[in-house]
Design a protein around this nucleic acid. Structure first.
Lengths: 201, 201
DNA sequence: TCCCGATGTCTACAACTGTAGACTTATCTG
DNA sequence: CAGATAAGTCTACAGTTGTAGACATCGGGA
């Protein structure tokens, strides 16, 4: 923001003129920046500088900040699986993965955080609504089956998003400071309820 | 924004000069605006106009936008209880309250939404972190007891926040369109696990 | 009655935002 | 070795933001 570092990638100080590589660099920088600061919290100049280009190139490649955000959301959701393991081990694996990913020292920020930090902007929220029903919802529906699979799948997402929120973003004490194993066991018990087809009646 | 409407409150077109009443009007407008648009999504001019005053009066009464936000967060959390019922009925009551509050047609936006929409700004996040540990955390710790009460309390908050997020903000299909009773039953089953003192081992 | 302090407004500024058009420079083809 | 075209940059603009200082106005006490 205020320092005058010429480049942030220490390797190649100047990229050869390559349209697709530059486009990819902008997109990666956008994912990181939107995840960290949210749609309204970051400007195209910041993203451009982080990618080693000027702001106008973003408009040339993506049309506008909104369209860049849409592609960034897709890129953030695409390679990510929100569940882990299969069958009986699904609850435990997913719980441990969640705890590991939301650890305060883990710098890996995920699509949930991107979603969270950009939810204030109506345009951004609409873009993300489409993305989440496209990626995560479909993925979960493939793993879960039985009565109320849709509800249970999205409740699984809800709990993950909530833990992410309180633990990683807000830094609530009990979730942040206690031993991770205890937390994982508690969460696993909840997931166990959700993977069971007919829970209530 | 662009119209020249002199006042928005149809009742008293001009408030008599009353410092505390004006202060309260600004605070109410701030809670509503921050909840709807987030910390970065609303300007002091919007809040001022909604309160029927000019922007500068906000700085006169609250010092800065940040300090106004801090008071707004406190005001949003203060009158709200995030759990309902006691003892054996706690899980069911809280589940039904959550479902009712996060209904798409319910226009009652809560502190979770304020928190969510403002989480992108680091200053705002710090202010909210202090508020949530002060209000909700304390409240829950009084109701829950036994082994891992802190973790279970915050997991209860996590699930609520997550459901709020997917259902009310994102509008995810399975959580938004299905019958509320089914959703409440599924959530109650999860809460039931969380109110039980020794869940895992 | 007068006047002083509290209450509220007006003008302005410096910083920042996203975007448009004109400009420069490198890379590849003939 | 040219020249054309893609790749990237520079300057600028209109808008918005939070805030500071000077100014106006209402209300009550002497």
């Amino acid at each position: 923001m205020s320092d005058a570092a010429p480049q942030d990638t220490p390797g190649p100080p100047k990229r050869r003129r390559d349209a697709s590589a530059t486009r990819q660099a902008i997109l990666s920088a956008a994912v990181a920046a939107f995840t960290r600061y949210g749609y309204d919290g970051v400007g195209v100049r910041d993203i451009a500088q982080s990618a080693g280009v000027t702001a106008m190139l973003i408009n040339r490649y993506f049309g506008s900040k909104e369209q860049l955000f849409a592609e960034a959301v897709d890129a953030a959701f695409a390679p990510r699986t929100v569940i882990a393991g299969t069958g009986a081990a699904l609850a435990g694996e997913t719980a441990r993965t969640l705890v590991a990913r939301t650890a305060p020292e883990a710098e890996e920020l995920g699509p949930f955080l991107l979603m969270l930090r950009s939810a204030a902007n109506p345009r951004a929220a609409q873009i993300m609504r489409e993305a989440i029903t496209r990626h995560a919802g479909r993925h979960l529906n493939e793993e879960l089956s039985g009565a109320g699979a849709g509800i249970r799948a999205e409740l699984m997402l809800s709990l993950q998003a909530g833990v992410w929120l309180l633990r990683s973003v807000l830094g609530t004490p009990a979730l942040s400071e206690g031993p991770p194993e205890d937390l994982a066991q508690h969460i696993e018990a909840l997931f166990q309820v959700l993977v069971t087809p007919c829970a209530a009646e």
